[in-house]
Simulated assay, not measured.
Amino acid sequence: MAKSPEAPASNAAPSEGTVLNGGTVSPSGKGRATPSRAEQEAARKRPLVADTKEAKARARADLAAQREKARVGMAAGDEKFLPVRDKGPQRRFARDFVDSGWHLGEALMPAMVLVIVATFIPLPAIQYYSFIALWIFILFVIGDMIITSIRVKRAVRDKFGAERMEKGLGWYAAMRTIQMRFMRLPKPQVKRGQHPA
């Protein structure tokens, strides 16, 4: 009588992708299911806002560089970085007109500091006369502002024409006279005594 073929051992490991006794399928070779398209897209998404210390530091450095560039450009009188108040060839001419001369208003702030110091001197006469001198000086400063305003408007009218005369240009120039030269913005682009272009 012929021998029947031997049955496979029950403890043999099932091959990949074969059906087991319980009806379940053994895992594929990579040991996990293929992710769906939604899962793949979610894995590829990255936040738009920097979420690392290096990225935040780089963003802060870029912003600081942009601000510094704008500050330097404004100080140099670059039209691209100037506020609306300072833009235009007439405003530039008015600034150069003021910066080319000497004005009493430049000494107004130091004079006020001297008067404040004088108030600490325990002599009523010194305190009184220092205040009187300050008010007299302020009157001269106001007179210089008025004269400068008139001269600037006349010079702008001669250079650009009456039809291109901007409103408020005289006041703009007058207010610049009471700023100390090193504190003016935009910075002076002409030397004292130099005729504005």
Rank of each mutant, 00 (worst) to 15 (best):
K3L: 12
S4A: 08
S15W: 08
T18Q: 13
T18M: 09
V19I: 15
V19C: 10
V19M: 12
L20Q: 06
V25T: 12
S28T: 01
K30S: 08
P35S: 02
P35V: 07
R37I: 14
A38G: 12
A38N: 07
R44F: 05
L48P: 12
A50D: 07
A57S: 09
R60G: 06
R60E: 06
A61L: 04
D62Y: 03
Q66C: 05
Q66W: 01
A75P: 08
A76R: 11
D78S: 15
P83W: 14
K87V: 00
P89N: 03
R91P: 03
F97E: 02
V98R: 00
D99C: 06
H103K: 01
P110C: 06
L114H: 14
V117F: 15
F120A: 12
L123Y: 13
P124F: 00
Q127N: 12
Y129V: 10
S130C: 01
F131T: 01
I150C: 09
V152E: 04
K153P: 05
V156M: 13
R164N: 13
M165P: 04
K167D: 08
L169D: 09
G170Q: 06
M175E: 12
I178L: 07
Q179G: 02
M180W: 14
M183H: 04
K187T: 03
Q189I: 04
V190Y: 02
K191T: 03
R192G: 11
G193N: 04
H195Q: 15
H195R: 15
P196C: 06
